[in-house]
Design a protein around this nucleic acid. Structure first.
Lengths: 248, 248
DNA sequence: TAAGTTCCCGCATAATCACGCAAATATTTT
DNA sequence: AAAATATTTGCGTGATTATGCGGGAACTTA
């Protein structure tokens, strides 16, 4: 069996199970543990997976483990700042959750007169502190992990809205699947958010570029603008620009 | 199971429940307590959580506890404690806003399995921290002054609910007008809350007795139970008892 | 205070890893 | 096609890591 084949098999297993054990692989592939380990190491260097003691995990684990609850990372401030310029007086803005978004809300100019629609509780609370923002919370059952309202009711009500802008906190974005996320219920809501807005903006710090989770929120061509903390000319962004996204 | 996998699971649990017990984890993950403890310690060193005797807490939990002590008047604690006894497993509870209510939510026993309906943002956020509570947020336009959703949409959806209990944070209560409040939009919602519940409970600290605002929420006879920090035999409560309210 | 947990420490065991080397295999050159 | 070169693989060795267990200390709770 060829090396490439083996590695393809490993990736496949990772995609299915989100993890592999070296011990399993060396039986399935009929090679020594060393070989498996070397394969994993190589794949890890290519960023295809995450090597750990005893095997490897899908890259998505990285986000669970490294869940930076750090509120104000400088990167997030930069992103927030860029995004704020897109919001004009009188706009109706649909806004998702996440710490970047909270940062953004916090930085909104006090004299801005816009209406915000959200399903995320901390964001709503933050928006309430703004002197002029009108806040609409689409409620329903709340999802604990994301602190947001989810479900058919929310999706339906989003369908009745025609927004100018959709600001999307993005967990993972890559060229293949576009924007992806972890939980089905979140996907549903985000999809509806995108659908109801004229322009969709994805806010992602650069480390979330070229990573993907299991479930697709939307393909790349449904995203209009991509905002990262990087300079638009950064090479990491070029493939996205080629796909027609505006980069800020 | 891989170590990182375990740790990811722990982080997930922390994100959902804001806390974990070592004893629970070592059953769920099928490892010894030592291993769990070592995992927690490691995660604590990385700043992902906060280790405490018996388990670990989310890092944010600490902050919320500290900020909570600002509004924790002892009277409110007493009231909250009395009210909690009314909430049983499986109940559907409609709950309004206010600091007393926040105190109450904070003190809910972790093993309580109830569903809560609210329109108040900080209450919703607090409820999300509870490990077992199901939270339903009825959303719409948010009223800044009360940090809650108001409007016809909310009233209508409350009309579709049949709740066991309505916990009402009360600004003013007197013998003539019953419960009163300041703003029209709040009144509307509170009325609907009372109407949809089998039992209405008014939570008020004693200084709010015998005071009234401009607008009536409901007359006294629509309130079933009145909870204050006073002893039920206190003379200030006797007139209310005579009007048929249960006093706790 | 006393009982029951939980924690901490060191140790033993087993699994996993890293490294060098030589054999096997693949690729390029002649 | 043969030789030369490069790459890949497996194995042995010793180092590193992960885990469970015992015993005593520290903490919690009644």
């Amino acid at each position: 069996m060829l090396k490439k084949e083996r590695q393809a098999y490993i990736i496949q297993q990772i995609n299915i199970h989100n993890k592999v054990l070296s011990s399993d692989l060396c039986v399935q592939l009929d090679v020594s543990e060393d070989t498996v380990r070397r394969d994993l190491q190589e794949l890890a260097e290519e960023g295809k997976l995450m090597k750990v003691h005893g095997g490897a995990l899908a890259k998505s684990f990285h986000f669970t483990i490294e869940s930076k609850q750090v509120y104000s990372l400088p990167e997030k401030k930069i992103i927030a700042h860029k995004a704020i310029d897109l919001i004009k007086d009188g706009m109706l803005v649909v806004i998702s959750g996440g710490t970047t978004m909270r940062e953004l809300v916090n930085m909104l100019p006090p004299d801005l007169n816009a209406t915000f629609v959200t399903t995320n509780v901390p964001i709503a609370l933050e928006l309430l502190e703004h002197p002029n923002a009108e806040v609409i919370f689409l409620g329903n059952k709340l999802l604990k992990s994301a602190q947001m309202a989810v479900g058919a009711e929310v999706v339906q009500r989003l369908g009745q809205i025609k927004a100018d802008l959709c600001l999307l906190g993005t967990n993972s974005i890559d060229l293949h699947l576009g924007i992806t996320d972890l939980e089905w219920e979140i996907i549903e809501v985000k999809k509806a958010m995108i659908a109801c807005a004229q322009k969709t903006v994805s806010l992602a710090i650069s480390e979330k570029l070229n990573s993907s989770q299991r479930l697709q929120v939307c393909p790349l061509d449904e995203v209009d603008i991509l905002i990262t903390e990087l300079d638009p000319s950064d090479e990491r962004l070029i493939p996205y620009a080629k796909r027609g996204l505006s980069i800020l």
